[in-house]
Simulated assay, not measured.
Amino acid sequence: MQPTMEFLTTEEAIKVDAALLSSKEKFSTRLAIYALRCLKQIAAEKEISVSEVTSEQVSDWIKQDENIQQQLEVDSSFEMFFTRLVLSSLNPLKQIAIEEDKPIENLTVEQVIAWFEKESKIRQE
């Protein structure tokens, strides 16, 4: 059984809240940070790279995540929904990794937030 993980730490939440982002962009940023954390954990357990993580592995992770257990008991479709959300976060994470010229596994929270801020600024211009 995996250790209990928060969606975001208090420090991460403060950093996202301070970012110059809309509410929707902050949600996407929070999701990407959480996805990065759980994808890194899955990849480490399976001894693969983050980009090789499958939807089945994410689904198994979600089933084991104690933070999500209550939601799974209430809504059986939540597992598939959340799996898709986590996997969709791979797209921006891959883009960030390319721009930073480093593997996804080595990305930091600050780099994720900075990328979302940069993308937001580009969309606004």
Rank of each mutant, 00 (worst) to 15 (best):
Q70A: 10
E110D: 10
F27R: 12
R30H: 06
Q71F: 07
V16P: 01
Q57W: 04
R30K: 15
T10Q: 14
E66W: 00
L72C: 01
I68M: 11
L39G: 04
L90K: 04
M5K: 14
C38K: 11
Q111N: 02
E52D: 14
V16K: 05
E119K: 04
W61Y: 15
L72E: 03
L21N: 01
N106E: 15
L36I: 01
S59N: 06
E56S: 12
Q71D: 06
D65Y: 04
S89A: 12
E117D: 06
S51N: 14
L107S: 11
P92G: 03
V74T: 05
Q71V: 14
A35H: 02
K24E: 13
T9N: 09
E56Y: 09
Q71Y: 07
M1I: 05
E45N: 13
A97C: 04
V50F: 04
K94D: 00
T10A: 10
I14N: 07
V74M: 03
K40N: 15
A32N: 11
Q124T: 02
L93M: 03
T10W: 06
M5P: 00
V86Q: 09
E52K: 13
L20C: 05
I14K: 15
R84A: 14
S51H: 12
A114E: 09
Y34G: 07
A43D: 09
T83P: 05
E105V: 09
T29H: 06
E12G: 07
V86R: 06
L21H: 01
T9F: 05
S22L: 07
N91T: 14
L93G: 03
E100S: 14
S23A: 14
A18R: 12
Q2D: 10
W115Y: 15
E73F: 03
K46D: 08
V50E: 05
A43N: 10
Q57V: 06
R37D: 09
A19L: 08
K121L: 05
A35C: 07
L93P: 06
Q69F: 09
P103S: 05
Q64G: 10
